[in-house]
Design a protein around this nucleic acid. Sequence first.
DNA 1: AAGCTTCGCAACCGCTCTACA
DNA 2: CTGTAGAGCGGTTGCGAAGCT
Length: 265
Amino acid sequence: MEKSKTRSGVRKGAWTYEEDKLLKSCISKYGEGKWHLVPQRAGLNRCRKSCRLRWLNYLNPTINKEILSEDEVDMMLRLHKLLGNRWSLIVGRLPGGTANYVKNYWHTHLQKKMVSRKLEESKEREKLEETVKPHAIIKPQPLTFSANSPWLNRKYINFVTPIVAVSTKDGTVANDHIENTMLPINDTDVDCAAQPYTTNSTMSAMWWENLLNVSNDKIASSSLLQEDDSNLEFPNVNFLEVPNVNYSNWDSNLYEFDSILDILN
DNA sequence: AAGCTTCGCAACCGCTCTACA
DNA sequence: CTGTAGAGCGGTTGCGAAGCT
């Protein structure tokens, strides 16, 4: 650090006891803030930034100069994970600290800790990957039908009953979707495959058989089908829309997010 | 004991944000 | 809307103390 003066003649470098005394008495007299006036008021040959920094990082009596406890260090790690290098926000949760102190502490103590922790984690992950073979996951696949499929051809499924009431977002039922409509297997999951609704148990069993035997090239996701009608191998199929989406969970998630922000602010 | 290296922290710098004319 | 000044923040620097050889 240069102990010389700047071009404008303002002093730089370490603060002397006398300078500290002048700054302290100035702040106690006029209070914090209006830093551009502080050098003049205090009779200091320092820039306003330097005065502010000296007060906030060193002279302010609210600063807690004790060594951080384990809990506080743990809190700092968590907050840093959450907020990144936003020291002013982090220090807001660590009473008595200063942003500069927290920043310094992070760079000198915790950064290494974090690096070594990450290294350990990646080693453990590598070990796991060596010993544990990944499972082949068999996911249920949605089913598509060809236009000639007997399941959807009226001459074969004339016994199939009204197939399904197609809900609209406002909850009304569109009766003109009766032909070739399909019930989702589970009406809470719009991504699931559609199953023709039939009162005939043999037909139902055959449908399931068909589902299990279907070749991969016949598989398409229902979401894809919904995105673009041109992809429909079977364009007349209508899928149930979720009639009333329950946003209560979303609301509660938003509430939790707000709570986090409240804590941080 | 002397010289060198490492570490911790105070302080500076440059940039962004905000308020106001 | 734009320009300007003050305030604040995060990155970086460099001094001095502590530790090591």
